[in-house]
Design a protein around this nucleic acid. Structure first.
Lengths: 218, 218
DNA sequence: CGGGATCCCTTAGGATACTG
DNA sequence: CAGTATCCTAAGGGATCCCG
């Protein structure tokens, strides 16, 4: 038996053999946002050594979770359907880990892909379905995201690479403390007062709607 | 920063820092079934070296996921409420990994706790709610389980340590191929015909109910 | 440049033996 | 029973280099 196998006939064990290695699920996290090239993955995972990234990509490919697709001169990696089925796992982990996040430390970075998945984690479709369709622009540290909510569906894209299609209803900037807005620890009005959230354009009351749409208990 | 941290301010990353080390989630898996003592954990994880088990238990305790509880001369480990909130993560992993299980290999063991969690993974509360309450006794390799379904609720206990309370509706024995019954690949009647499932007591038609109650697409 | 491969070192993981 | 202690291997980490 391969040394890294667990020696049990069990689904959980099998899953951990496939994606339990260090960095593997973070690669999956970023690929859940969309196909990425090698350098984009490396950029989103600043602390992964290139040999490890390279090794993981081969392993994930071998396991049938990702595909290496040549796209006219550049190579992109994308999830296979089976790889994409890891989304519930990643979201469940994100929801659980959210509660243990504490305050950000200086050396911790925020990446657009991780913020995108965080928003997907906190998204409440059944709540959103009761609210009018809304487009937000959220500047969260280095991540500039265009967040479109329409009924129970959510689409998050990087606003710096999205063709501007129509004005957004609310544009705001916030730091990592937005976590406290999402957790309900900080009311929207209070978030604006204290400067945690800075409204750039649009009606500030829409931040209530945002907080209602994206919520994760802590 | 600690070497083993990922350097990102992200819930998924945080979760992986807490339970992403090798063996950690398997310890959690077994503790989700119930409190366990050190030797029980070691028995359910035959390939974990004792120093690793010891290290992980300390780390999980440090992280506030488990508690070390002296119980009149013996020490048991149990999940804290926060640790128990990992159940959705573990079930999601199990459901995903189930599809990649393939056929069992000789060196792979089956443990009562892993089978218990597998049944929890495959349990469909909304289907069960439409069916009469039913008690099964399932002998799955070394795991002898008493499975009680009552409306949308499920209780699985080891039948060898449970006081017999009333006869079960169906008792059966099966090997690892029961996976093919759960996945729907093998119809209940066919499972009995081919000897994959051996009915020990009770009406064999109840195996249809079992297969309906416990189902996981592959 | 993008997309890796190589080298060397550190540390975690694994096997076995041993102890309060 | 509930772990430590030890030794060794293999994986992870960091820097650098290579190649189209």
């Amino acid at each position: 038996m391969a040394a890294r196998e667990y020696g049990q006939y069990c689904g959980i064990t099998r899953a951990l053999e496939l994606v339990g290695e260090r960095w593997a699920l973070l690669i999956v996290r970023d690929l859940l946002v969309g196909p990425r090239r090698y350098s984009e993955l490396a950029g989103g995972l600043p602390r992964v050594p290139s040999n490890i990234l390279s090794t993981r990509l081969k392993e994930l490919q071998e396991a049938g979770l990702i595909r290496r697709v040549p796209h006219s001169r550049v190579i992109v990696y994308e999830l296979t359907p089976y790889g994409a089925e890891l989304e519930p796992v990643v979201l469940a982990l994100g929801a659980w880990g959210f509660k243990a996040m504490g305050d950000p430390r200086a050396e911790q970075v925020i990446t657009p892909d991780s913020m995108t998945m965080a928003l997907r984690t906190a998204f409440r479709p059944q709540v959103a379905a009761q609210l009018p369709a809304t487009a937000y622009e959220a500047r969260l540290g280095p991540a500039e995201l265009l967040v479109r909510v329409d009924g129970p569906s959510l689409a998050v894209t990087r606003s710096d690479v999205t063709l501007g299609d129509g004005p957004v209803d609310l544009a705001f900037a916030a730091g990592p403390d937005i976590r406290r807005l999402i957790s309900g620890e900080l009311a929207p009005a209070r978030a604006i007062e204290t400067g945690v959230v800075e409204v750039l354009r649009g009606r500030r009351e829409l931040l209530d709607r945002f907080a209602d749409t994206f919520h994760l208990a802590a």
